[in-house]
C-alpha cells in the first residue's frame, strides 16, 4: 500500500464504481477467507473429504437407475452416468455455493460490523471455497470417461471456459442473494424452492434434445443451460450450439454486472442493517 494514501469518508456516494485497486490490495484476505471456509467445512466429520466424492457419485447412481430403467433419455453417444455426473458436478457446486454464500454476510456479521474490507470478498470466498470439491469431482469424471472409453477431442480445451462461466454465474447469484438476505431474511427460506425449480428447468439429468428444436432456444435464457450444454459438448466432443451458448454467456455477463451494482448500492448500509 502506498505510504500516504488518503481515505475519504463521505455520506452515501452515488458513484457505483468498483474499486479494483482496493480489491487487489485485499486479495490475501480473499485467500484467507476461502482457506478458512475449506478448512472448517469438514471439521468434526467422520469421513471428511470423502463426502466430496460420495455426494456426486451417489446422486449419479440414483439418477442412472431412475432415468435408464424407468424413463429413458436419449443422451446421444454419451453413456448416461457420464452425462448425469458432468451436469451434477456443476449443479452441486452451484447449489452448495449459493446456499452457503447466501447466508455468508449474515453469518459473518461480527466481521462486517467490526472491520472494514470490501464486503464482496465474503460471498466470493464462500463460492471459491467450493472449488476444491469441483476439482476433485472432475478428477472422478475424467477417470470415468477413461473407463467408458470416451474419445477426447480438441474441444475439451474449451471446457475450462464453461467451468469459469459456472463460477461467474454462481458468484453473481451469491453476491446478489447474500446482500438481499441481509435486508430480507426471507431469502434463506425461499432459496431451497428457487434452487429446486432451477434444477428441474435445467438440463442436468435430461438433455435439451428431448424438446422440439424450435423450443430449445428458450431454454438458453436459463444461463445454466448454455454452461451445461457447452461443457458436455467440449467434454464429449459434440457440436456446440453456438447461438444458445452466446445467449447464455451474454446473460451471465449481464447478471454479474447487475448483481455487482446491486451489491455496491447496498454495501454502505450493510453494517446498520445486519
Amino acid at each position: 500500500m502506498p505510504e500516504h494514501q488518503i481515505i475519504r469518508i463521505e455520506p452515501e456516494n452515488a458513484r457505483l464504481r468498483l474499486d479494483f485497486r482496493e480489491l487487489w490490495n485485499y486479495r490475501e484476505l480473499l485467500y484467507f477467507l476461502t482457506w478458512r471456509d475449506v478448512k472448517v467445512r469438514y471439521k468434526q466429520t467422520a469421513i471428511g473429504i470423502l463426502w466430496v466424492i460420495l455426494q456426486p457419485l451417489l446422486t449419479t447412481a440414483i439418477f442412472t437407475i431412475i432415468f435408464t430403467h424407468f424413463a429413458r433419455f436419449e443422451t446421444l453417444q454419451v453413456p448416461y452416468p457420464l452425462f448425469a455426473l458432468s451436469g451434477l458436478l456443476i449443479w452441486l457446486f452451484m447449489h452448495f455455493s449459493i446456499t452457503m454464500a447466501t447466508n455468508s454476510l449474515v453469518s459473518n456479521a461480527s466481521l462486517v460490523t467490526k472491520v472494514y474490507f470490501p464486503r464482496i470478498i465474503i460471498p466470493t470466498a464462500s463460492v471459491l471455497g467450493g472449488l476444491l470439491d469441483l476439482i476433485l469431482g472432475f478428477l472422478i469424471l475424467f477417470a470415468m470417461m477413461f473407463y467408458y472409453g470416451i474419445n477426447i477431442t480438441w474441444k475439451i480445451l474449451l471446457a475450462p471456459l464453461f467451468v469459469l462461466e459456472a463460477i461467474v454465474l454462481t458468484i453473481s447469484f451469491s453476491i446478489f442473494l447474500s446482500m438481499l438476505n441481509v435486508r430480507f431474511r426471507d431469502v434463506k427460506f425461499a432459496l431451497p424452492f428457487f434452487l429446486q425449480i432451477w434444477m428441474f428447468v435445467s438440463p442436468i439429468f435430461y438433455p435439451l434434445d428431448v424438446f422440439p428444436e424450435n423450443w430449445r432456444i428458450l431454454f438458453y435464457f436459463n444461463p445454466l443451460s448454455g454452461i451445461l450444454e457447452g461443457l458436455r459438448s467440449s467434454l464429449f466432443g459434440q457440436n456446440f450450439d453456438l447461438v444458445g451458448i452466446s445467449i447464455s454467456t451474454l446473460l451471465i455477463v449481464f447478471l454479474l454486472i447487475m448483481s455487482t451494482l446491486f451489491f455496491k448500492w447496498m454495501e454502505s448500509e450493510i453494517a446498520d442493517l445486519i
Partner: peptide, 28 residues
Amino acid sequence: KILSRITKPTSGRAEICGRVGSLLEIGT
C-alpha cells in the same frame, strides 16, 4: 465505526491520511 469505514455518516465528511487499523472487538 465511521472512522473505521464500517458505516457511513449521514452527513459531514472526514479525511484520514495513512493506513488505519481498527480494534473494535477482541478476537475479530
